[in-house]
Design a protein around this nucleic acid. Structure first.
Lengths: 164, 164
DNA sequence: ATTCCTATTTGTAATCATTACAACTCTATT
DNA sequence: AATAGAGTTGTAATGATTACAAATAGGAAT
């Protein structure tokens, strides 16, 4: 599988340390050396990398980096909304520094994962990528179902009552 | 988490052995005892069960059942298009006997996974389920990107040429 | 019925991504 | 410089899934 075809675009996305730092602060993440490096990597590499890919690529410049730190940091970033986890692959989680609403397309042959903008009429010819032959669509929603929303609302009310 | 709320609907979906057997044959799956049982379970239980849930529930009636068989059978079923795998959860794969195009909604509180019909106007009030509060949408496409489609087409042509 | 062949099933062992945890380091504050 | 707290690191554990080889069942041919 051809993993890094999108990397030719890396130069277009280059970010300064300060830009990345500010982005972390905007999401209430304290900017450590490792966190900046990982966030910068996600912002510059639109390839939806795995933990291993992030770790291996950053290890050169940060030889003390631990894979656990990559896991920890990605958890912080996703919890704080600075990145999202993508479950399009069966095995590995993949990560995306772009948290704006968009879909993903995974080529079943080369394994590349492309970003698909979500427009109303659901066209599937994407500028710069071309025509995509869709064999499978998976649409997942997460949130609260009616019963849990009501229970949660009720609990909040009772909590406020007992708190006051 | 409340896993089996949907089970109250099981009775509505009851299938005979023959119905299930025919369904397997339609998908070119040789209907063994175990395969019928697992397919029947998926057709009757719309709860999007995990491997463990399927195994534990069927173990009572088939005490010789092996978890490996459940894995093997689910792989056969998904390969042959008689079922689909759902990756909405981080840990476990879930399975669905309904292969028609539809979305899934996972309640972040109780963990229930509901089927969402895909209509044009993307409404999200579902009969029998009620209003769903969406906090997260993940839309995944899989297929072939332009380059792989062309490469594949080219390979087919050359294969045909060499074969003739 | 018996033999043979193949597909299916089964149990165990291995794999591998992820998480738990405890020790260590770094920085800021007093 | 001592302390505290957050962040980092390495190792060990977890747990879902897969690999594999042995056992079993089923069907066709004799």
């Amino acid at each position: 599988m051809i993993t890094n075809r999108n990397k030719i675009q890396v130069d277009n996305y280059m970010k300064t340390m300060d830009e990345v730092k500010q982005h972390l602060l905007d999401h209430e993440v304290k900017p450590s050396l490792q966190r900046i490096a990982i966030m910068k990597y996600l912002m510059e590499n639109k390839t939806h990398p795995t933990v291993d890919e992030i770790y291996n690529d950053l290890y050169e410049s940060i030889p003390t980096l631990s894979k656990t730190t990559v896991y920890n940091t990605l958890k912080v970033l996703t919890d704080k909304g600075a990145a999202i986890m993508i479950g399009i692959e069966e095995k590995n989680a993949r990560f995306d520094g772009d948290t704006s609403p968009h879909a993903h397309f995974r080529c079943k042959d080369c394994g590349c994962i492309y970003d698909i903008p979500l427009d109303e009429n659901n066209t599937i010819f994407v500028d710069g990528i071309g025509e995509l032959i869709i064999e499978e669509v998976r649409l997942y929603y997460k949130g609260l179902c009616k019963e849990c929303a009501e229970r949660s609302k009720h609990n909040n009310i009772t909590n406020e009552e007992t708190a006051s």
